[in-house]
Design a protein around this nucleic acid. Structure first.
Lengths: 224, 224
DNA sequence: TCCGTTATTTTGAGTAGTCAAAATTGATTT
DNA sequence: AAATCAATTTTGACTACTCAAAATAACGGA
C-alpha cells in the first residue's frame, strides 16, 4: 500500500500529464506547484518514486508515470471521484464541498468499500462535475467535449463537465444553472469583448467571461 | 486537528480507562500493548500528549485523560462507531469486517460528513456490536448489562452487545444467532465445566465456554 | 563565446513517529 | 539491608516528509 503522500504525487502527476499532451514529461517544478510543496521537496520525492518504479525520471528531464505508476494513479482518481459522487448522491452534500472531503477520504476507503459504493451508484462513468471516473480496470470513458468559447453562435448544447473544483466557482455555476445536464443555447461568442452570451431553459440571457466559459465543457445537442 | 496517531492514543486510552474502573490511571505499558508499539514509544508519545494538555502524566505514575483529552477521545469513538453502523446499514458490509474499515475511516471523516451519517441513521445510540455511540456532545447511553455467566439458569434474556471485535469471533457469534436483538433462554451455567448452555429461538441448545460467554452481554427479558 | 536569468537539484536541518537496547526505578524477596 | 526482578524511562538511531538556502545546469541573448 502506498502512503497518502505517494498517492497524491501520483494523482497530481496523472492530472498534469492529462492536462498536457499526456505524452511529454511533467517538470518537477510544475509538480511542486500543483502539490504546493517547494521544488526541492518534489525533486527528492520524485527520486523515491523512480526508485519504486512508479515514474521514469532523469535529472532535469522531467517525470512521467510508468505503467504501474499510472495504474496506481488511476486507482486514486477512481476513489476520489466515486467518493465525490457518493457524497452528493447518497449523503446529500453539495457538489461544491465534496472535492475537499474526497481529498482526504480517497486515501482511506478500502477496495471493499469502494466496490459497494460503485455498485450502489450503478457503476457510474462520471462524477458530479462531469469528470470521468476510471472503471475498476482503470479505463476512462472519453468524450469529445467543446468548451463554451469553441461553440458556434446559435448552437444548442448540453453542459457535460465543469472543470474547476473551487467551491466558489461551483456555487457560481450552480446558481446560473450551469450544471451537468443543463441545456443551453449559445447566443454570442465575442472574442473582443472576451465574453460568451448564453440562454438557458429559463430564458434570461447570461454573459460570462472567456476564462469562466472555458471551464464549462459541453456536448452539441442534435437540435430538435 | 490531531494526527491519526494522537487520535489512536486517545481512543485506546479511553477504552482502557473504561475497561478499568475509569478512575485509576493506565500504565504506559498497558497502553503500549494496546497500541502495539514498544513501551519506550508509548512513554515518549505520552509525554507529548501531556505537553498538549490531553493527558495527565507523572513518571511511573501512569496516564489519565484530561477533560479535553476525554472529549477528543469520545469524538474519535463516535466517528468509529457511527462509521461502523453506516457501513453495515447503508453499504451492507458484514458486521465482522467493519471494525477494521472504521479503524482507518474514523480519522478521515469530517464533521460535516459525520452529521449527515448521524442523521441518516436516526442518531443511533448503539453500533452493530451493541457498543454505545457517544452523541454529538460526547454523552454515552449507559445500560446495565449482564454477561452470560452472570445470568441465572432459566432466565430469558436478549443479546445487547458482543464485546469482541475480531472477525472470527463475530462470525462465530453470527453463525450461532448471538447477535444484538436475539432472545435466549439460559439453560445452564456450569462453573466446573466452564460452560454455559443456551437455547435460542430455533430450539436447539448451544454450549459455549465461559471465555466466550463473557463476551456476550445481555439484558434480562421481562419473561412473557 | 560569455553572461545573466530561470529552473532544478543538492544540502543541511527540522518534525513526527517509531524501534532496540541500555539505564533507572520501585517493589519483592531473602 | 541487600539482591533481584519487572516495569518504565532514556538514549541513539532510523524512516518519511518537509523547508530554506546554496549550488548547479540550461537556455537565450549580446
Amino acid at each position: 500500500m502506498h502512503s497518502s503522500t505517494t498517492e497524491n504525487y501520483l494523482k497530481h502527476l496523472l492530472l498534469l500529464q492529462q492536462q498536457q499532451d499526456d505524452e511529454s514529461p511533467v517538470s518537477t517544478g510544475k509538480l511542486a506547484t500543483s502539490l504546493e510543496v517547494t521544488p526541492g521537496t518534489a525533486t527528492v520525492m520524485v527520486k523515491g518514486l523512480a526508485e519504486s518504479g512508479l515514474v521514469d525520471y532523469e535529472s532535469r528531464g522531467g517525470v512521467r508515470l510508468t505503467r504501474s505508476g499510472q495504474k496506481a494513479a488511476l486507482d486514486v482518481l477512481r476513489r476520489h471521484r466515486l467518493v465525490e459522487l457518493f457524497l452528493v448522491r447518497v449523503l446529500g452534500l453539495d457538489w461544491s464541498e465534496v472535492h475537499e472531503e474526497a481529498e482526504i477520504l480517497e486515501h482511506a476507503v478500502s477496495e471493499k468499500v469502494l466496490q459497494k459504493i460503485d455498485l450502489m451508484l450503478g457503476k457510474p462513468a462520471f462524477d458530479p462535475h462531469g469528470d470521468p471516473i476510471p472503471d475498476a480496470r482503470g479505463r476512462l470513458a472519453d468524450r469529445r467535449l467543446l468548451s463554451l468559447p469553441e461553440c458556434k453562435e446559435g448552437q444548442r448544447v448540453e453542459v457535460s463537465r465543469v472543470d474547476d473544483q473551487s467551491p466558489q466557482f461551483l456555487r457560481f455555476a450552480e446558481g446560473r444553472g450551469l450544471t451537468p445536464g443543463a441545456s443551453l443555447t449559445i447566443e454570442a461568442v465575442d472574442e473582443v469583448a472576451d465574453a460568451v452570451t448564453l440562454r438557458g431553459k429559463g430564458g434570461e440571457p447570461l454573459v460570462i467571461g472567456f476564462a469562466a466559459a472555458k471551464k464549462i465543457l459541453v456536448s452539441p445537442l442534435s437540435d430538435g
